[in-house]
Computed example of a mutant assay.
Amino acid sequence: MANNLQNSLQTCETLMLDMDGTLLDLAYDSFIWLEVVPKEFAIKHRVSNDVAQKKIYQYFVDMQGSLDWYCLDKWSQLLDLDVLQIHRQHKSRINFLPGAKDFLEKVSRLEKRLLLVTNSNRDVFLLKSQITGVDQYFEKIYISHELGSPKEDQKFWFSLQQIEPFNPVTTCFVDDNPEVLKSAQKFGIKSLFHVTQPDASTTKSQNSEFDAIKGVFELIPLKN
């Protein structure tokens, strides 16, 4: 299995990587959105934590898969909180997933066009890049807000191909979101890898209909 995954990577011309939950530990984002934001919302609006969590969860459900779901300005408006400042206050929790930095250092030396494609908000991306240096490994970085659609939407891939003329047949794409992978598959990208342990604070793995990997470290032997 490992050899097959690594062979797929060796034969591709373009390697596209997601950021949150693929390279960077989703534990940070989970902490922000599941613990800190509900707590701050409860304090600001003088409601119980339970009420705050239910309110925010409903927003999650209503906006999931849309560009607004990833938009900090939208969340700040909805919640009447400075969500970016909350991210900054807890920036010490930002970190690579196990093996991800070693993977990037190795794969960046291969003859591949290495692209970061992320739904992250631009300000949060800049914050995470400042802390981790994740941006330095890529030839190009594409943020869905700047293309007008999230990766779950076919419009994202068509817009991306207009400015980055990649061949879907010779492209590998790695993401932790199965809905994003389904969208990439529909567009025609052949080599798709699903990171099933995006959060290092838990060993629980997601089920997958794609080639499943615990982390990107499985794509290249770290001892090479």
Rank of each mutant, 00 (worst) to 15 (best):
M1R: 12
M1K: 12
A2E: 13
N3W: 03
Q6A: 13
N7Y: 11
S8E: 14
Q10G: 00
Q10P: 00
T11S: 14
M16Q: 08
L17E: 04
D18E: 09
D18W: 11
D18R: 10
M19E: 11
T22C: 10
L23G: 07
L23N: 04
D29L: 06
F31K: 10
I32A: 02
I32F: 05
L34T: 13
L34C: 02
K39C: 01
K39Y: 11
K44G: 00
R46Q: 15
S48K: 04
N49S: 13
N49K: 12
D50W: 01
A52L: 04
I56A: 05
Q58R: 13
Q58Y: 05
F60G: 00
Q64C: 04
Q64S: 12
S66L: 03
S76V: 02
Q77C: 08
Q77P: 00
D80W: 00
V83T: 14
L84N: 06
Q85H: 13
H90P: 02
K91W: 00
S92M: 01
R93W: 01
I94R: 04
I94P: 03
F96D: 09
L97F: 09
P98Q: 08
F103C: 09
L104M: 13
E105S: 10
V107S: 08
S108K: 14
S108F: 07
R113W: 01
L114I: 12
L115Q: 04
T118R: 08
N119F: 03
R122K: 13
R122L: 12
V124K: 08
F125H: 09
F125Q: 02
L126C: 04
L126T: 03
K128A: 10
K128E: 12
Q130V: 00
G133N: 06
Q136P: 00
Y137K: 08
F138P: 09
E139I: 01
K140I: 00
I141K: 04
Y142S: 01
S144H: 07
S149P: 00
K151W: 07
E152F: 01
D153Y: 02
D153V: 02
K155F: 01
F156N: 07
L160G: 03
N167D: 15
F173C: 06
D176G: 07
N177D: 15
L181P: 06
L181W: 06
L181S: 07
K182A: 14
A184E: 04
G188T: 03
I189R: 03
L192W: 12
L192S: 11
L192T: 10
F193L: 14
H194Q: 09
Q197K: 15
P198C: 05
P198I: 09
D199S: 12
T202Y: 03
K204S: 11
N207F: 06
D211M: 12
A212M: 03
L219W: 05
L219E: 06
L222F: 10
K223V: 08
N224W: 08
